[in-house]
Computed example of a mutant assay.
Amino acid sequence: MDTLARGEAAETISSEQAPRRRRRSRWSDARRQIRHGWQLYLMLLLPVAYVLVFQYWPMFGVQIAFRNYNVVQGITGSPWVGLQNFERFIDSYMFWPVIRNTIVLQGYELVATFPLPIVLALALNYVRLRWFKRSVQMITYAPHFISTVVIVGMLFVLLDPRTGLLNNLLGLVGIDAIDFMGNPDYFRHLYVWSGVWQSLGFNAIIYLAALAGIDPELHEAAIVDGATKIKRIWHIDLPGIAPIAVILLILNIGSILSIGFEKALLMQNPLNLATSEVIDTYVYKVGLASDVPQFSYAAAIGLFRSVVGLLLLVLANQLARRFAKSSLW
């Protein structure tokens, strides 16, 4: 009996030590890998430091959204007010206008910019004239390198009611000049389609790379079976780029409230505020551009936008995993 008891005790001790041995073995393997590839880990150190310093450390300042922030008192010394700034934003008269404008503008942009690069990539994929294909790629890709300020400046020059090229052409056919930049009904169309012109070629590169990874034997077999180009696109190309398209769609849905304020702010004027005032421009105005900057209020609005964007990202990912069998995680 004593021998049996000692055997059971030894098995118990060995079973308790097994996880420690596995952890020790994993740690030794990790150290061995680091010693063998220390150059790669040294290269990884800089981007990791960048993420920690510029992405994670600023999260410490997010707490000002829950405080009545004062520059003199600092972040930790400012009084805690809880959800007061969030309640103020939700109860304000600007809440629904800026939310509606942001969602409508970003949704319009998503509908316009998401399918067009796919169409362009599919069309270029079947072009046989190499010089024509390269020319189209260069023409559509070049606007990506034009800054947002220049793009908006071009819009003002082309659409000026008195000297703009478009209004001059309209005048030749007897149509009165139109103040495109001052009419709120035109703001969304100008914003979206100028963005389409600027980003179409660059976004198509991603899909061209995905199309290049499709096995050519699939197309050869389809041609032997008598499939037309339309059928090859529908049954080979689209399924081949579907995972990339789904991932990009998920990311776009997650950022539906983060439209960016630069272009909207540059195109904005007192006449088109009804449709051009979005969350980002509103945050900029109340947080920095007002006579009395409201840092806590602006931070609360920005945090609200980020939380909603995160929820939309998770929801879009779950729907994509369920229906498209592809997701970010």
Rank of each mutant, 00 (worst) to 15 (best):
S327T: 14
H189S: 13
N252H: 14
T76D: 11
A227Q: 07
L46C: 07
L120N: 02
V71G: 08
L312T: 01
I146E: 09
D91F: 15
L169I: 13
A298W: 00
G61Y: 07
R22A: 04
A221Y: 12
I99M: 06
R6V: 09
G213H: 04
I99S: 05
L46Y: 05
D280Y: 06
P184L: 13
W193G: 00
W57P: 02
I236G: 03
D91A: 13
Q84M: 12
E217M: 11
Y191S: 06
Y297S: 00
I178V: 06
V224S: 11
N68L: 13
I175A: 06
F60P: 03
F95M: 07
R322M: 15
P97E: 04
I151Q: 10
I205V: 15
V157K: 10
H219I: 00
R35F: 09
R20Q: 15
L165S: 06
I301C: 01
A30F: 14
D237N: 06
I75M: 10
I233T: 02
W96H: 05
I236F: 00
Y297D: 00
T12S: 11
I279T: 04
I301P: 03
L313A: 05
Y207M: 10
N101T: 07
Y186Q: 02
M59H: 10
L45T: 09
T76E: 14
N168C: 15
G174L: 10
V119T: 15
N168M: 13
P184M: 12
E8N: 12
R32P: 01
D225S: 07
I236S: 03
M59P: 01
Q84E: 08
Y93C: 06
N68A: 14
F187Y: 00
L271Y: 09
H219Q: 06
L166R: 07
L169V: 08
Q84S: 13
A123Q: 05
L110N: 09
L238P: 02
S296R: 10
V111I: 15
S92M: 12
N85I: 02
L218Q: 04
S255K: 09
L257F: 06
F295Q: 04
Y297A: 00
D179G: 07
T102F: 03
F156E: 14
P184I: 12
S199D: 13
F261I: 11
R20V: 15
S78C: 12
V104T: 04
S135V: 11
F323D: 07
T76R: 09
A209K: 08
G74Q: 10
A316P: 05
V136M: 03
P79A: 14
M59T: 08
H189C: 14
S28T: 13
A245K: 01
Y186M: 09
L273G: 07
R6S: 10
T148N: 06
L172G: 07
L158C: 03
Q137V: 11
R32C: 06
L211W: 02
V136G: 01
G61W: 09
A289T: 08
H144K: 03
F86R: 04
F95L: 12
Y93W: 14
